[in-house]
């Protein structure tokens, strides 16, 4: 019996450039962040006025409230959806409308920058190497509140979608036959993005969250760690099946760089050693 460790190619960072929004939001941030960093109150007010007069720059928030399914009857839902919906309704992290007319429409230069930051950061996390998540070192005062709101809303959306998605549960169970390697890696990428949203949120707003909210966020983070472990398991098993075929002399793994790093690290630590049986 001979054994060898997997060899991995570096992920292809140019993949990120194919995604609409990556270059565009980066260019937007490169112009707008330095602009507001050096602006005084009068200048910021003028920027806000210009932005507020441009309807294309409005940002709608609390999109995650769509998971409430207010019109759905419980009996019409699958057990998975029903259970998740109950959890959703009990969550301490939901945002409530301040009034019936509240459409969660936000305007201002801070919202514009915050949206660019979260969109660009998520693409970068999913497809680039050596990333400083959301470039928090450049976070500006004017966008901080907006960015926190978008982080929490984004985290809620990703979390509840994954909870309601049967595929997530197949990955958690390590159902190799039903989940292919590419799909598993994509879900792993989503878990990575969500964990980074949660970490950024904790870093920025941890002190303002209640103990109950912090506990819930921690449990979400742990759930995503389980998803990543499920992805790793599926990759190991797929790897083993593939490597047992005759004539294979090399194999590469590409995917979300952070995820691949994690899998690589697990393998090098002996957690997922792959062996070739002859």
């Amino acid at each position: 019996m001979s054994g060898y460790l997997a060899e991995f190619d570096e992920p292809d960072p140019s993949d990120a450039y194919q995604i609409v929004g990556y270059q565009e939001y980066a260019n937007a941030l490169n112009h707008l962040v330095p602009l507001v960093q050096k602006a005084n109150a009068e200048q910021l007010a003028a920027y806000d006025k210009i932005v507020s007069n441009m309807p294309e720059l409005a940002v709608y928030t609390n999109l995650s409230r769509r998971f409430n399914f207010p019109e759905a009857r419980n009996s019409a839902l699958t057990p998975l959806l029903r259970g998740t919906l109950n959890l959703y309704r009990q969550s301490s992290l939901n945002e409530q409308a301040l009034g019936e007319d509240n459409e969660f429409r936000r305007t201002g230069i801070g919202w514009v920058i915050a949206l660019a930051r979260i969109e660009h950061g998520a693409i970068e996390l999913g497809y680039q190497k050596n990333v400083s998540p959301f470039n928090l070192e450049n976070l500006t005062q004017v966008e901080q509140a907006a960015f926190q709101e978008l982080l929490l809303d984004g985290a809620r959306s990703h979390y509840w979608t994954m909870r309601m998605d049967p595929m997530t549960h197949l990955i958690l169970k390590g159902e190799v036959v039903k989940v292919n390697d590419r799909t598993a890696l994509a879900y792993g990428r989503r878990a990575v993005i969500l964990q980074n949203l949660l970490q950024a949120l904790n870093h920025l707003a941890g002190a303002t969250l209640s103990p109950v909210q912090k506990t819930e966020l921690q449990s979400w983070f742990n759930d995503m760690t389980e998803v990543r472990e499920g992805v790793s398991y599926i990759m190991y098993e797929t790897y083993k099946q593939a490597i047992s075929k005759q004539g294979i002399y090399s194999m590469d793994l590409e995917g979300c760089p952070r995820l691949v790093e994690g899998i690589r690290s697990d393998i090098s630590l002996g957690k997922g050693r792959i062996q070739l049986e002859k």
Partner: peptide, 21 residues
Amino acid sequence: VARRHENIWSWENGGFSLAIG
């Protein structure tokens, strides 16, 4: 699309590539 980050994660650009000769 309301948020790109809710969609782009699912682009399955990863996976194994095997070399069999």
